[in-house]
Computed example of a mutant assay.
Amino acid sequence: MLKEHAKLMGVFAACGEITGRKKLQKMIYIAKKIAFPFQEKFEFHFYGPYSEELTLRVEELCNMEFLHEVREKKGGYYQYRYTLTEEGETFLRHAEVDMPYLKEIVTEMNDQSARFLELVSTVLYFDTLTRGEVAEKIFTLKRKQRYTEEEIKEAYTYIEQLKAESART
Rank of each mutant, 00 (worst) to 15 (best):
A6S: 14
M9W: 05
M9D: 03
G10M: 12
V11M: 03
F12G: 12
F12W: 03
A13V: 04
A13P: 02
A14M: 14
C15P: 07
I18G: 03
G20S: 14
Y29V: 13
Y29E: 06
Y29N: 03
K32I: 05
K33N: 13
I34F: 08
A35N: 12
A35E: 05
F36H: 04
E43F: 08
Y47E: 02
Y50L: 15
S51K: 07
E53S: 12
L54E: 14
R57K: 12
R57P: 00
E60N: 10
L61V: 02
N63P: 00
M64T: 09
E65I: 06
F66Q: 01
E69N: 10
E72I: 09
K73I: 00
G76Y: 08
Y78M: 00
T83Q: 12
E89G: 05
H94A: 07
A95T: 07
E96F: 06
Y101V: 12
I105G: 01
I105Q: 01
I105V: 15
T107V: 10
T107H: 02
E108D: 02
M109V: 04
N110F: 08
D111A: 15
S113V: 13
R115F: 06
R115I: 06
F116E: 02
V120L: 10
V120G: 06
V120Y: 06
S121A: 13
S121D: 07
Y125H: 10
F126T: 02
D127T: 08
T128S: 10
L129M: 10
T130I: 04
E133N: 05
V134L: 09
K142F: 14
Y147D: 01
E150R: 13
E150F: 09
E151A: 11
A155S: 10
Y156V: 02
E160M: 14
E165A: 09
A167G: 11
